[in-house]
Amino acid sequence: MDEGALVTRALAGDQQAFAALVEAYQVPVYNLSYRMLGNAAEAEDAAQEAFLRAYLQLKTYDPAKRFSTWLFSIAAHYCIDQLRRRRFSWSTLESLTGRDSQDHGALDPEERALNNEEGRELQRALMLLPENYRLVLILRYWQDLSYEEIMAVTRISESALKTRLHRAREMLAEKMRGGRATPAMAQGLVQAVNRKEEGDGVLSEC
């Protein structure tokens, strides 16, 4: 059964139809949450919450748009909300205890299975990016969304998305190099090259 029919049936109160939608989107939504939050247990809870919210807000869904972008938008906003709350509670807790908030304790079995050293390094670097930068990378790479779809999820303009994606890649490269920028980044040459890319398209010299 196609997605539109499932949504229509779910809107009419058919819980089996909604369960089929959850089944179809559980992995992408969970992965979005996991990459955003960096913790398996929190990600599972966030993904469940995103589906619950989607169910409750189903009447606001516009069938002319893709269900996946609408659902990712709910999940992404919920994750950003959780990160802001976490930041607040961590800063409060730290101020009381002086504990390092970045220490999340031992990895659970699922995280251990997923994360070899390379995977851990990537996720660690990803978690160091600002959440809006992290989100566009996740949507681009793990959800395989086009620019138009990412714009629909994040509600930003095309030029803002281009800049954000580029900066996110640069920052991630820098974090993966242990905080060392490439010489081009350090000299601000990349920005010059990119201005030319977006401008007259002429590349002459750095």
Binding site: V22, Q48, E110, R140
Partner: peptide, 22 residues
Amino acid sequence: RLREAPLVALSGDFVPEVMRRI
């Protein structure tokens, strides 16, 4: 590196848990 990064698998009771919450 980003393109090669894997998708994380989920526990089998995810869908029933969502429906239970609903």
